[in-house]
């Protein structure tokens, strides 16, 4: 069981208080109608599924219900940190750059 820090409740809590909410920072095409089938299909279905560091969303369902970003290692389960979605996004974009 993971121990995840909720950036809103500002406390490390056990995994059972949270619900996994998928990969973080997937961009929804701004004008879906203009996206071709391949682009749209990629957005709906394709996920990174990396072996290593992964930016993901967790929701504190048994707590404040907020969704936030977690950077987690999929092999070691190490958690580098958790951030509000906005704070995490800045860091995420810097990493991607």
């Amino acid at each position: 069981m993971l121990v995840i820090t909720c950036p809103y409740c500002q406390e490390a809590r056990e995994e059972e208080e949270f619900s996994y909410a998928g990969e973080a920072y997937i961009a929804r095409p701004a004008v879906p109608e203009e996206a071709d089938d391949a682009t749209w299909g990629d957005y709906v279905f394709h996920r990174k599924n990396p072996r290593g560091w992964h930016w993901e969303q967790w929701q504190h369902v048994a707590g404040c219900r907020k969704v936030f970003a977690v950077k987690r290692h999929t092999v070691t389960y190490e958690i580098a940190g958790s951030w509000t979605l906005a704070d995490g996004k800045a860091l995420y974009l810097k990493e991607q750059a």
Partner: peptide, 13 residues
């Protein structure tokens, strides 16, 4: 309920 929260918080805050 979770679906509404997630779309609101992640996509249309």
């Amino acid at each position: 309920y979770s679906w509404l929260e997630r779309w609101h918080q992640t996509e249309w805050p």
